[in-house]
């Protein structure tokens, strides 16, 4: 979620007007997701946040791409966007590292907090390894519980 604009927030640097429509679109989608009614099934208890996490991931990726891949925005604007929390600074920091290029969310690499006995999330395991380790070559894993990621290893 971006910060709420107040009198004290600095004015957006030049070039913000070019990306504003896209950011507004993201906001709209986020609102739609918020208003959706989640499932009451206990089995789907985790799924409520998946879409929100996915959207924030997408927006972070968008800003990351704008600055590092397309080189379409200035450094000032990029920093302003990070400060206003349009993108997840910590997540982007991970994306710059080798092996974490496609990381879905920070919780999935947080070994101390995860429920799966102190390991990183299953979505970090490459699909080829999953296939190799399964008995009959069929992978039962579809989505991780943290953010609904279906696999974010760099080799996938």
């Amino acid at each position: 979620m971006p910060r709420i604009k107040t009198k004290r927030t600095k004015a957006a640097p030049e070039g913000f007007d070019k990306i504003q429509p896209t950011l507004a679109d993201f906001d709209l989608r986020l609102k739609e997701v918020h208003s959706e009614q989640g499932s009451k099934l206990a089995a789907k208890a985790n799924e409520g946040t998946w879409k929100i996490l996915q959207l924030t991931h997408e927006r972070s990726r968008y800003i990351f791409d704008l600055f590092y891949k397309r080189k379409a925005i200035s450094k000032e604007l990029y920093e302003w966007l990070l400060r206003e929390k349009y993108a997840d600074k910590m997540l982007i920091a991970k994306w710059k590292k080798r092996g974490y290029e496609k990381l879905c969310c920070l919780r999935c690499i947080q070994s101390s907090e995860s429920s799966s006995e102190g390991h990183t999330c299953i979505c970090r395991v490459p699909r080829s390894v999953l296939e190799k380790n399964s008995k009959d070559g069929v992978v039962t894993f579809t989505r991780c519980t943290h953010c609904g990621c279906s696999g974010c290893a760099s080799s996938d």
Binding site: I19, T22, Y62, A72
Partner: peptide, 9 residues
């Protein structure tokens, strides 16, 4: 198309 937008949109 807007070169400042995402492919998704």
């Amino acid at each position: 198309l807007d070169p400042f937008s995402t492919w998704n949109m």
